[in-house]
Nucleic acid binder design. Structure first.
Lengths: 214, 214
DNA sequence: TATCTTGTTATACGGTTGTGTAATTCAACG
DNA sequence: CGTTGAATTACACAACCGTATAACAAGATA
């Protein structure tokens, strides 16, 4: 006699998006083990069975969710380059600061990212996603460095990109995991100084805070 | 009629050590979800019930295991400073290289470390362990930097330590997760160059490879 | 309004999880 | 050598996991 739960039919894209978002939400809140099939479905407002209708397995959903997360993080970084200054040094400075500031640097984002590290090492497909996004970010950085008014060969340029990427990643990590251990703006300031020192360029002076939101 | 499994009584310390080691082993191999009570006990050569005899809960064991892991990683870093050269610049150079080389930099170690990041954010006690070890490492680094023959104030010294720590952590991370993306020694070389650039010291020239194992 | 497709729910199943409790057997002690 | 205490095993239990399958109903089509 009990009537079935009423529902609405949604587009495949919408449902997949909702399920992926719900999965990432739960991983961010409670770690990988909190993102169970039932919890994900509940968060997305559907019943558990629907997950297997849109994803061949939970592992499939996990992979897709990781893909989505990495896309988002790379897009957040790239967004800074839109509507920025034209001066090459200023562009690099803004990019560096953005990479170690919210929303890119964020405790939740780091927790989310870390949750997948082990799977990245194990799963070929996930490792491919990771490599692609890592190189994408580094190439963005390398492009900005190459545009600087200084003369270096290709070999040196690559080393510079790796080194600067290292500083950024390290500060991103520490600032996100232990935000209370640093004063506001301290990480950004240190990032500018050290990347500038590696490239022998004054990034502190070139940095132009965002003026698009007055 | 079935006889019970024979066993030997061991000291509390030995049993706790075995269980912790087994737990870390399993997390390294298969992620946090692989370290179940039964799997840990099996790996340690005991039955599952024994875990609850030495640890009040599985969460308790997890915390202790994380503590042990961090102690080990810090100890590995500090070990480099034993039996090293006396010259301050050379000591720093050796420390930097060791921090981004095996066994400190290692895919398994990173996977292990990442598995606990989420819990660190959530659990107060684990966050305390993390903070302690992070500051311990950074202070070691700061001590090495302070010994360099150059004049800087305390404020600058702290910033230098944070920055250098950032480079090291970032390169440690990338070199460990994507070891095949770099040539042998490339990460170490870049680490020396960039830390040297930040501190305005020639670390490449000062680096003295270990001569204790000819 | 009647029909059909399929998105969605409902339910069942075997396996696994962490935990609680009682039964054993080891090893030290008198 | 018998006794005793506790380290260890054995077992039970409820909750939860991911998956499979069948029944239903929503909404487009005619």
């Amino acid at each position: 006699m009990a009537s079935r739960r009423p529902y609405r039919r949604e587009s495949e894209e919408r449902r997949r998006d909702d399920l992926i978002a719900a999965a990432l939400d739960l991983v961010a809140e409670g770690g990988l083990h909190a993102a169970t099939v039932r919890a994900i479905a509940d968060r997305a407002g559907v019943t558990p069975g629907l997950i297997r209708h849109y994803f061949s397995s939970k592992e499939d959903l996990t992979r897709v969710a990781y893909h989505r997360l990495m896309e988002q993080m790379t897009a957040d970084s790239a967004a800074v380059l839109q509507d920025g200054p034209e001066d090459a040094t200023a562009r690099l400075a803004n990019f560096v600061v953005a990479s170690v500031s919210p929303p890119v640097a964020d405790p939740v984002a780091v927790g989310l990212w870390a949750a997948f590290v082990h799977d990245v090492r194990r799963d070929t497909e996930m490792r491919h996603v990771h490599t692609t996004n890592y190189l994408s970010f580094r190439n963005m950085l390398q492009g900005l460095i190459a545009a600087l008014p200084r003369a270096v060969n290709d070999r040196q340029l690559l080393c510079d990109a790796i080194a600067c990427n290292g500083v950024i990643d390290g500060l991103w990590l520490e600032g996100s995991i232990l935000p209370e251990a640093f004063e506001p703006g301290e990480i950004a300031s240190i990032a500018l100084t050290s990347v500038g020192a590696i490239l022998n360029v004054n990034l502190v002076a070139a940095y132009q805070p965002d003026r698009t939101t007055p």
